[in-house]
Design a protein around this nucleic acid. Structure first.
Length: 502
RNA sequence: GGGCCGUUAGCUCAGUUUGGUAGAGCAACGGACUUUUAAUCCGUAGGUCGAAGGUUCGACUCCUUCACGGCUCACCA
């Protein structure tokens, strides 16, 4: 038996048996060779030779070198079938004792499902027409010490799928597909923006003043400088500094961090697209989002209609647009439309809905409470809600005709917010005033209120051109396009409480 | 944070209602088998039933607390 220090957690008899096999391999040579180079991937072989007649293939004598993890092993006496899985898909291999070097077949029979093999051989087709490699040489290049989950059901345990994503990815092709699509979505977004002359940038993730969103930040500490730092809650204020600097079109596909609850739609760290475009307003962004979503669904899923859980979503029609006050009326038909900005009236409605009304909440804040309670989940089809109250939009440009409102929208699909955008507030004096209000709110106990960012005001004083900007939740977008019910299904390593190893 | 549900062999699951000391399939181990497709056939081994207490002659089963997870409500994004 091996020494204790070499053992991983959860050692059991199955692992011990495989460890014993590894020890035997070490005794007769290099147990972890790395000198084999394949010359074909499984899906290339299926595409190129899958249509060939079996007799034809025999005559062609096509030699290939493949490698991958052994997912299936069927030993039938002096011959066996196995399946190797590479990054594309699986390819079957047949091993016959009498075609292999002396004693090799006996060694192979001790290998386990999960081991990583390299095979050289010739293509042929089985009686049932499956493209298969007849092995001439076979090498075990990585011994797998841990047994894989059961082949038919795969890995079903949700907790283990998230904690040990590597096992989930080995076993569940649907899970691999989700992350392939995630990558395609991000690639598509980059191409979409790059083609419009946007510059991709990276801005700090550690902020001395958190800002750009309404949320509690994570705090950390810089030892050498002995100072408090915050993980960013949004890159917004840095990106707008870049527009001041003359990068008129910028974007960042960013990881941001918010110290809030965890749910099927919230992870402490999440990915967002933020983009800023000078000489544009929020209507231009609405058009961009509409074009982006139509292009994405067509390109990624091959259709402009998609199924998400219980909903059929149609991206082909023009997306709906409605103002906050109109949508509140639509879903609250008994409301008194003449009192939509009457704080006392709204406070009463909010209280009836179970909202704890804060003393410093104005009509705008209360409108949003009512919206969240009565409207949000009903916005199933793609909808832009516009004209958000200034009170809840401290970075948005005030509407020219109605100072109660800003030129802002949020984008909803399947009852969830996917994006938030607005014409940027580029009046430094108005912005300074809004920051002061936020500071007052913080003093009054609002622990999500923004801080006063002096350097950001200074940047605005140099002059931010008229600009529009938006944030788009990438994780929620991926959920939508992969029909995933939980944000954890689209995050490779979602946040989990630490596992206890004893 | 509240509510509901779950945690049994490496994996997928029975067993809990009605307490009597744990089962199957796959995987493993030994054997048979040269075209399988969740291969098949014979045999063997594998579990302090999430943890700790309690009730009981006796607890996987009933009760309490805790841990982790899922769904959901609240809060938010």
């Amino acid at each position: 038996m091996n020494e204790n220090k070499n053992k991983g957690p959860d050692e059991n008899a199955l692992i011990a048996e495989r460890r014993r096999k590894l020890t035997e391999m070490r005794e007769v040579g290099n147990a972890y060779p790395n000198d084999f180079r394949r010359n074909a991937l499984a899906d290339e072989l299926h595409q190129t030779y899958g249509g060939h007649e079996g007799d034809h293939l025999r005559e062609e004598e096509i030699h290939v070198k493949v490698s991958g993890r052994m997912m299936v092993k069927r030993v039938m006496g002096k011959a066996s079938f196995i399946k190797l899985k590479d990054r594309t898909t699986q390819i079957q291999v047949r091993l016959e004792r009498d075609r292999l070097a002396e004693g090799l077949y006996q060694k192979f029979k001790k290998w386990d499902v999960g081991d990583i093999l390299c095979v050289s051989g010739t293509l042929f087709k089985t009686n049932t027409g499956e493209l298969t490699v007849m092995a001439e040489e076979v090498t075990l290049v990585t011994k797998s010490l841990r047994p894989l989950p059961e082949k038919f059901h795969g890995l079903a345990d949700q907790e283990m799928r998230y904690r040990q994503r590597y096992v989930d990815l080995i076993m569940n092709e649907e899970s691999r597909d989700v992350f392939r699509i995630r990558s395609q979505i991000i690639t598509y977004i980059r191409a979409f923006l790059d083609s419009q002359d946007f510059l991709e940038v990276e801005t700090p993730m550690m902020h001395s003043t958190p800002g750009g969103a309404v949320a509690r930040p994570f705090e950390t500490h810089h030892n050498a400088l002995d100072m408090k730092l915050f993980l960013r809650i949004a890159p917004e204020l840095f990106l707008k500094r870049l527009v001041v600097g003359g990068f008129e079109r910028v974007y960042e596909i960013n990881r941001s961090f918010r110290n809030e609850g965890v749910s099927t739609q919230h992870n402490p760290e999440f990915t967002m697209l933020e983009l800023y475009r000078a000489y544009a307003d929020y209507n231009d962004l609405i058009e961009m989002i509409e074009a982006l979503f139509k292009g994405l669904s067509q390109s990624i899923l091959g259709s402009t209609t998609i199924t998400y859980q219980e909903d059929e979503i149609d991206f082909s029609k023009p997306f709906a647009r409605i103002t906050v006050e109109d949508v509140i009326q639509k879903f609250n038909p008994d409301i008194d439309a003449t009192r939509l900005r009457d704080r006392e009236y709204l406070a009463g409605l909010a209280t009836d809905l179970g909202v704890k009304v804060q003393d410093n909440a104005g009509a705008g804040k209360l409108q949003m409470e009512i919206f969240d309670k009565t409207c949000e989940t009903k916005l199933r089809q793609p909808t832009f809600v516009t004209a958000y109250p200034t009170e809840v939009s401290p970075l948005s440009r005030r509407n020219d005709d109605d100072p109660f409102l800003t030129d802002r929208f949020e984008f909803f699909v399947v009852g969830r917010e996917l994006a938030n955008g607005f014409s940027e507030l580029n009046d430094p004096e108005d912005q300074a005033e809004r920051f002061r209000e936020q500071v007052e709110n913080a003093a009054a106990g609002d622990d999500e209120a923004m801080s006063y960012d002096h350097d950001y005001i200074r940047a605005l004083e140099y002059g931010l051109p008229p600009t529009a900007g938006l944030g788009l939740g990438i994780d929620r977008l991926v959920m939508l396009l992969t029909n995933s019910a939980s944000i954890r299904d689209v995050l490779l390593f979602p946040y989990m409480r630490p596992e206890v190893f004893d």
